[in-house]
Design a protein around this nucleic acid. Structure first.
Length: 578
RNA sequence: GGGGUCGUAGUUCAGCUGGUUAGAACGCCGGCCUGUCACGCCGGAGGUCGCGAGUUCGAGUCUCGUCGGCCCCGCCA
């Protein structure tokens, strides 16, 4: 057995004259007759190996090499006559004196190269080949390094990584559970955890004080570019917590993670209450890169003579405006397109104003009135004002979406890292489907003290001690200060419409635990895959997961999920319908 | 649950208002080539047009269904 001395991708001019042994996969063979060049690839990169005619036996063997053969090569590192500046190892090559073919390879269904020359479908079917691509090797390595940063950072800050069960209880709130039938107790089921929420809070009751875990979570919901059935969270919980200190801790974690890609992070992160985020950006995960935001024009518009605006006001609506810098030269067609988009987003219509070469607007209004609105928005000559008069939520949502998707006039803004905290979320939201309040975050989230009385009178108005960390319009993580008082926890369950029996059945042990001395505590959970995706500059979570499922929830490589035999079902006390 | 889009050599794609023998590039196979590095040159093989019905004298092309990929809405405490 040839024993490797160096990785292919690590050979440099300094290795000149050294006897080396390389192992790896054949990337490409260039046979030019009396001379054969073979590029050999391993996880660190490519190296060129050259076979000369004076070693006839070796060269004949080399001519039989094909892409993806696994080889070991012994030889001497030589400086190249003609340097290849496109290759990190381009200053040297290995003059072969030994060649071992460890394995031949079938012709691969696609060439291993970046960018991939195969559909994602094919890549997923032959994932083991796709993962050989340098880009995938880099992504998976980055994932490892990110996990290492998290573990080191958390441990340095006094946190213990503690494992929690994968076989847990179904939860009445939240996403659909993956169920696991119990063979010992037929008819009863475990559920895979949507998050270790109750366990980590229980660990706080047990006095572990500072917990974290890089942990797999499971949610049986539709898949997306940024969502998988199973995904990984950085789960964190601490006791006796000061919110400012906790925010700083998490900001420090981001600082450490983004240092992996050489990016500096501006701290502290700005904080904005949910209501402000909605008013200014029309979303609870604002992208702070675009340098413009939504303004309220309700008061100004009421003073104008515009019939449609006054009618919207009379109907209880509000008027919101978005001033888009430099967009004053849009064509009528483009403006019509925007109007159509606004209607798709649920607004009744979209009005616009611009002033290049005199006032122009879709609104019939006096110049004085236009001037008034323009002034309220602070518009300049080249800008474009967009107005929506509608129900407040509709107007904000539509303008927020326009803002979010507006192309940035300055491309360098795309590269900015704009973090923020969104705080004071509503505790509950009304579920039309279930005709009851449901937790916006989760049922263990503490209400803001002042709003506790609202639990009985007007639950929809109660605010929560919940927070999200948002980066460039992407939710990286969310958490809250938890309820550590048993009585308050019961009241919240009550407000959610859970009966005494349900509460006892699903959360009995937990309420009991809270009764034995629970410290004030809180925490957060980050989407680890999304973070790595951001670090890697990828558009899909599947690019940072070695073996992901398709959006149809299939594993194209293994064929999972699969059918099971009657025996196996019977043993579990299960019978398939139909 | 809903909407959009795609499916044609091994791969990535082209294929017009339905009409002769379904093309290109890359890859693959064979030959030549002593400094290549997307090597080059010459030659060759390779197709269930995802699958199933239907319309038609005739379907890769039109219709319906179905399977699969991707994106979005709902959903994702």
């Amino acid at each position: 057995m040839l024993k490797r001395t160096d990785y292919c991708g690590e050979l440099r001019a300094g290795h000149e004259g050294r006897e080396v042994v390389l192992t790896g996969w054949v990337q490409r063979v260039r046979d030019i007759g009396q001379l054969v060049f073979v590029d050999v690839r391993d996880r660190e990169g490519l190296a060129q190996v050259v076979f000369h005619a004076d070693r006839h036996d070796l060269m004949e063997e080399a001519k039989r090499l094909r892409p993806e053969f696994v080889v070991g090569i012994g030889g001497t590192v030589r400086r190249r006559a003609a340097v290849n500046p496109d290759m990190p190892t381009g200053e040297v090559e290995v003059e072969a004196s030994d060649l071992r073919v460890f394995a031949a390879a079938k012709v691969p269904p696609f060439v291993i190269s970046d960018p991939p020359q195969a559909s994602e479908e094919l890549r997923l079917k032959y994932r083991y080949l796709d993962l050989r691509r340098p880009r995938m090797q880099r992504n998976i390595r980055l994932r490892h390094e990110a996990a290492l940063v998290v573990r080191n950072y958390m441990s340095r800050n006094g946190f213990l990584e503690i494992e929690t069960p994968i076989l847990a209880n179904p939860t009445p709130e939240g996403a659909r559970d993956f169920l696991v039938p119990s063979r010992f107790h037929k008819g009863r089921f475990y559920a895979l955890p949507q998050s270790p929420q109750q366990f980590k809070q229980t660990l706080m009751v047990s006095g572990f004080d500072r917990y974290f875990q890089i942990v797999r979570c499971f949610r049986d919901e539709a898949l997306r570019a940024d969502r998988q059935l199973e995904f990984t969270q950085i789960d964190i919980e601490t006791s006796f917590i000061d919110r400012d200190d906790f925010f700083a801790l998490n900001e420090g974690l981001m600082e450490a993670l983004f240092a992996l890609i050489g990016r500096r992070v501006e701290r502290p992160f700005p904080r904005l209450p949910y209501s402000e985020s909605m008013e200014r950006f029309g979303t609870d995960k604002p992208d702070l890169r675009p340098p413009f935001e939504i303004r309220d024009l309700t008061a100004v518009a009421g003073e104008t003579g515009s019939e449609p605006l006054r009618a919207a006001l009379a109907a209880g609506g509000e008027i919101k405006g978005l001033l888009v810098p430099g967009a004053g030269s849009l064509s009528r067609g483009q403006l019509d397109k925007l109007g159509e988009k606004a209607r798709e987003l649920g607004a009744k219509g979209l009005a616009w104003i611009r002033r290049q070469g005199g006032w122009k607007s879709s609104l019939k209004m006096s110049d004085a009135d236009l001037e008034r609105i323009w002034g309220a928005l602070g518009g300049a000559e080249v800008d474009l004002a967009l107005l929506i008069a509608d129900r407040k939520e509709t107007a904000l949502k539509a303008l927020g979406e326009m803002r979010r998707t507006w192309p940035l006039e300055d491309p360098s803004r795309r590269d900015l890292l704009k973090f923020c905290w969104v705080t004071d979320f509503p505790l509950f939201e009304w579920s039309e489907e279930e005709k009851r309040f449901v937790s916006m975050h989760h049922p263990f989230t503490s209400p803001v003290e002042d709003d506790v009385p609202l639990l009985d009178t007007d639950p929809g108005k109660a605010r929560a001690k919940a927070y999200d960390m948002v980066l460039n319009g992407v939710e990286l993580g969310g958490g809250s200060i938890r309820i550590h008082d048993r009585t308050l926890q019961r009241r919240v369950f009550g407000a959610l419409g859970l009966t005494e029996e349900e509460t006892e059945g699903k959360f009995g042990y937990f309420l009991d635990a809270l009764g034995y001395g629970a410290p004030p505590h809180g925490g957060i959970a980050f989407g680890f895959d999304r973070l790595v995706m951001f670090l890697a500059g990828e558009e899909s979570i599947r690019e940072v997961i070695p073996f992901p499922k398709t959006t149809g929830a299939l594993d194209l490589m293994t064929g999972s999920p699969s059918n099971v035999g009657e025996d196996q079902l019977t043993e579990l006390g299960l019978k398939l319908k139909k």
